[in-house]
Design a binder for these strands. Structure first.
Lengths: 113, 113
DNA sequence: ATATTTTATCGTAAAAATACGATTAAAAAA
DNA sequence: TTTTTTAATCGTATTTTTACGATAAAATAT
């Protein structure tokens, strides 16, 4: 008996992309990281580790997740690592989101009450 | 040796709430469901099951996830279930998102390249 | 009254995510 | 040159998510 095979590829690329972005920001630690980067413009990894209630390895893992979907980018600065938000990707996500859900939201929706 | 205890409560309520919303839409099936509901206003569960490449039990599970964060609401309609988007919650999510990430995105960000 | 339709829930298997200590690698400081 | 600092990666334990068959519950249809 086989179970739990990934069905993601059965959906459209747009649906997969949007879901991937949403998933990436779907953890409080990653929200916190993005908030820090949004206010500080650029930030050394160590500063993020100091602020978050997580181990260095875990923060690195979260940074990697954000980097993989392109929401942040990093550059090596000596022995340190500097991160910042990639606003192009970020705004692209916003646009995709608003496009997909620009349905009938202005209708007086009184269904399913 | 204990590991992997949930650290979510160490973050702010706003961070947790926003992450919960993002997590809820962080799967292509749930994006697809929201898209259907956004265009159809209201929709019977069975129609969603027919359109998605997933088993009925799995779709029900995804619907439950969306309902739990308040993004959709459902009403029993005879033996059927009618679902629709809760636009109040939905727009609240949009607002929260835009508030948190209204940082310095207009700056000419050339860091971390 | 019985059968059918519809959907939620239960049980469970498999996969992915979360978390951290330990280690590695690479630059800087001593 | 050796030590220290910084951060990525590895290994691994635990938890959560994803997926589905089977069952239950509740209304409709026969």
């Amino acid at each position: 008996m086989q179970m739990s095979i990934d069905k993601s590829s059965e959906f459209t690329q747009a649906e997969q992309d949007l879901a991937a972005f949403a998933k990436a920001i779907g953890h409080p630690a990653r929200i916190a990281i993005l908030k820090i980067l949004a206010t500080k413009n650029a930030c050394i990894c160590g500063e993020i580790v100091n602020v978050l209630p997580l181990a260095q390895a875990t923060v690195s893992q979260h940074l990697k997740a954000l980097k993989e979907v392109g929401l942040i980018q990093g550059a090596i600065d000596g022995p340190k690592s500097c991160y910042c938000i990639n606003w192009v990707t970020f705004n692209n996500f916003k646009t995709q989101f608003n496009t997909v859900f620009s349905g009938i939201e202005n209708s007086n929706n009184t269904c399913c009450q």
